[in-house]
Computed example of a mutant assay.
Amino acid sequence: MPAGRNEQIVMLSGEPGATLAENVRLTLVDMIMKGAFDEGTRLYPERIAEQLGVSMTPVREALMQLAADGFVDGIQRRGFHVRTPDARQVTNLWQVRQGLELTAGELAVARRRDGLISDADIDYLSALQRSQESSEALANHVQKLDLNGRLHGRIVELSGNDILVSVYQSIRTKVAGSLVQRGLDTWRDRLEAESNEHWGLINALRDADFAAFETATRRHLARSLKDALADLAARPVDRDLTTKPKSVQA
């Protein structure tokens, strides 16, 4: 539901050793992914800091990172507003993603043939996919998306190309942001197709078969792009903006 005047924000904790700013960022990403804020909602640092019981500094750091990741627009003198990408941006992102994942797959297959990718590496991919199919992940879309990102990210890491990994990581959060459903539940209808596609990728790597990997990648990304665009078109546009706390009302 949209974030209203009385909605409370509950701080989440990231990885051990995470900074306060990272925990604030994680909290806001979780809320955005769940659709707690509508497109265009202005996020006031004062209100967030007050509700989380922290100073303004980590909140501003978190919002700046969210802007860099594409979750919000940071506009000078107008603040931070929750951002929804348009169809053209999502399509462009998927085109770049496909090129990177195909290149990574080609390199990973070659490394598998050369014995540089072990059965244990492939088993780890399988474990990530099984985790996506667990009851815990199926009950939590944000957790499901995180596991999905980790699976694709690990496949790219198996390419052994640090520059490719860095470029892919720079768009990974933007891909997740494009999958925000804002109250839609259509992702559950796609679980079987997604699972079959992921196993196709994993098995192709296990067999060191790039032709199979390419086919599986193109099928998977074509289907996921179609679904992302359908969800984008179906999202309600409600600009019930989050209000400032009374102490900072204009």
Rank of each mutant, 00 (worst) to 15 (best):
A137C: 01
L241R: 12
G105L: 13
L151S: 03
S247V: 02
G17F: 14
T57C: 03
L116D: 13
R235P: 15
N92I: 06
N6Q: 14
I48D: 09
H220T: 10
F37P: 02
R77I: 07
M1F: 10
L241G: 11
N148G: 09
G53I: 05
S247P: 00
T91M: 04
A139T: 07
M1Q: 13
Q65V: 06
G200R: 08
L28E: 08
W94K: 01
R60Q: 04
E106P: 04
D240P: 04
T84V: 05
Q143A: 04
Y124A: 15
I163T: 01
R97F: 04
M31A: 10
G4H: 01
E101Q: 12
L12A: 03
N148H: 11
A127H: 12
V90C: 01
A234D: 13
L241Q: 04
E214G: 01
V180H: 09
K226H: 09
L147N: 05
P85G: 00
I171Y: 10
V156L: 12
R5M: 15
R239N: 08
G35Y: 07
L12Y: 01
D231N: 14
V109R: 12
E133D: 01
V72D: 05
Q181G: 14
R150P: 11
Q129E: 11
D227R: 09
R97Q: 02
L100V: 08
E133G: 03
D38Y: 01
L151I: 09
A104N: 11
E157W: 15
T41H: 13
H81K: 15
R190F: 09
Q169Y: 10
R154A: 15
T173Y: 05
V165F: 03
N23K: 13
G99C: 00
A108D: 00
P2W: 06
E133R: 06
G153Y: 15
I48F: 07
R77E: 12
L52I: 10
L125Q: 02
K174V: 13
L107G: 02
I32D: 10
G53A: 07
Q95D: 08
Q8F: 14
D73W: 05
Y44N: 06
A216L: 01
V165H: 00
M1W: 11
D207H: 15
M64I: 00
V109W: 04
G183C: 03
D162Q: 05
L221Q: 13
H141V: 11
H141M: 12
G160W: 06
R77M: 11
R60V: 08
